[in-house]
Amino acid sequence: MMRILLLIFSSILLTGCLYPNDQLTENQATNDEQLNRVQEAVDEYRKATDGLLPIETKDQNTPIFIKYPIDFQVLREKGIMGEVPSNSFAGGGAYSYVLINPENDPTVKVVDARITQRLRTVNYQINLYRNEHDFAPFGDRLGKGVFSIDQEKLRLKDGYTVDSPYTEQTLDLVIGKGGEAKVDFRPDVYQLMEEEGIEEYEGDLRYLLTEHYPIVPAYSPAMFLDNGEIILESSE
């Protein structure tokens, strides 16, 4: 009996060491080992193909953080990778692997596929509403081309929020001017800026998140700092 208890206790400790925040964030599939393995495979592929990238072809209008998904089939065909990462969506996990900064510094990151699925459900409801009323359920204006969801018009069964893949905060869903649901990551950025003592930042603040986390803020409006306030902006 004592031996069984020790084995159970050891298993719990091992799980805690590997995934210390599992009960908090549920995003442990983005561990450094797997990210580094895919990054090395991408770098090797580039060297073997004179700079080509192992990515799937997407439409030019695809949002920037999901525009360059990694094509694991190509890496396997080249003999560079065997099995896909177990945390990848292709491997039954919760993350899709992508590249950011493909022209200058191709860097491997991941997209939380659970948020992708949530937005797919919300967009389905938005499209149903648009088909019936000829316009999206726009609420208050939150920024340039960004609006809240009018909860009186669109009654979402599962609410109007998602859990942050970074901080576990509750993040609001918003709508871009094109009628697509997006995630408002401002609370995460404000928290990160406070923790890191950041008062100024040039350019899109979504890249600040990618500098500190392995997960990209996919499906989100751009964010810019203006006199200490984060301004939302969407061209989609």
Results as ranks from 00 to 15, higher is better:
residue 66 I to A: 04
residue 6 L to M: 12
residue 116 T to P: 01
residue 202 E to A: 13
residue 138 F to L: 09
residue 72 F to I: 00
residue 178 G to R: 15
residue 39 Q to H: 07
residue 56 E to T: 12
residue 194 E to N: 15
residue 146 V to F: 01
residue 125 Q to M: 10
residue 45 Y to D: 12
residue 124 Y to V: 06
residue 212 H to W: 08
residue 126 I to A: 06
residue 197 G to D: 09
residue 127 N to F: 13
residue 1 M to V: 10
residue 59 D to V: 10
residue 61 N to K: 13
residue 42 V to M: 05
residue 141 R to N: 04
residue 34 Q to M: 11
residue 156 L to R: 08
residue 97 Y to M: 00
residue 186 R to Y: 09
residue 73 Q to Y: 06
residue 228 G to K: 04
residue 125 Q to H: 08
residue 163 D to T: 13
residue 149 I to C: 07
residue 36 N to K: 13
residue 24 L to N: 10
residue 113 A to V: 09
residue 116 T to E: 12
residue 222 A to T: 01
residue 175 I to T: 10
residue 117 Q to P: 00
residue 166 Y to K: 01
residue 22 D to N: 09
residue 185 F to A: 03
residue 156 L to S: 09
residue 164 S to H: 11
residue 126 I to H: 04
residue 196 E to Q: 15
residue 178 G to D: 15
residue 56 E to F: 10
residue 161 T to F: 15
residue 95 Y to P: 00
residue 104 N to D: 12
residue 63 P to D: 09
residue 171 L to C: 02
residue 142 L to T: 01
residue 208 L to A: 04
residue 232 L to V: 04
residue 218 A to V: 09
residue 64 I to L: 11
residue 107 T to V: 02
residue 2 M to K: 13
residue 60 Q to E: 11
residue 147 F to T: 07
residue 20 P to E: 05
residue 82 G to I: 04
residue 98 V to K: 04
residue 215 I to H: 06
residue 154 L to R: 05
residue 230 I to T: 06
residue 31 N to P: 00
residue 75 L to S: 03
residue 184 D to M: 08
residue 212 H to F: 13
residue 61 N to Q: 12
residue 179 G to T: 04
residue 119 L to N: 07
residue 170 T to K: 15
residue 166 Y to M: 02
residue 205 L to C: 01
residue 107 T to C: 00
residue 178 G to V: 11
residue 27 N to M: 09
residue 55 I to W: 06
residue 6 L to T: 10
residue 1 M to C: 09
residue 42 V to T: 04
residue 212 H to I: 00
residue 99 L to Y: 03
residue 81 M to D: 03
residue 87 N to M: 11
residue 177 K to P: 03
residue 180 E to H: 14
residue 129 Y to L: 03
residue 57 T to K: 14
residue 230 I to P: 04
residue 123 N to A: 06
residue 183 V to E: 08
residue 207 Y to N: 02
residue 213 Y to C: 03
residue 22 D to I: 12
residue 95 Y to A: 14
residue 168 E to W: 10
residue 156 L to W: 05
residue 181 A to Y: 15
residue 180 E to C: 03
residue 227 N to C: 00
residue 100 I to A: 01
residue 160 Y to W: 06
residue 95 Y to G: 02
residue 89 F to N: 07
residue 200 E to L: 11
residue 135 F to T: 11
residue 18 L to T: 07
residue 222 A to K: 12
residue 175 I to P: 11
residue 54 P to M: 04
residue 163 D to K: 12
residue 208 L to K: 02
residue 4 I to S: 12
residue 118 R to C: 09
residue 176 G to N: 15
residue 218 A to G: 09
residue 209 L to H: 03
residue 230 I to W: 07
residue 160 Y to T: 08
residue 146 V to W: 01
residue 196 E to I: 00
residue 4 I to V: 13
residue 217 P to I: 03
residue 5 L to V: 08
residue 17 C to V: 14
residue 201 Y to V: 11
residue 19 Y to P: 01
residue 52 L to F: 05
residue 171 L to V: 03
residue 33 E to A: 14
residue 67 K to P: 01
residue 172 D to N: 15
residue 139 G to T: 04
residue 163 D to W: 11
residue 51 G to K: 07
residue 118 R to F: 10
residue 166 Y to A: 01
residue 39 Q to T: 08
residue 131 N to V: 04
residue 102 P to A: 08
residue 209 L to S: 05
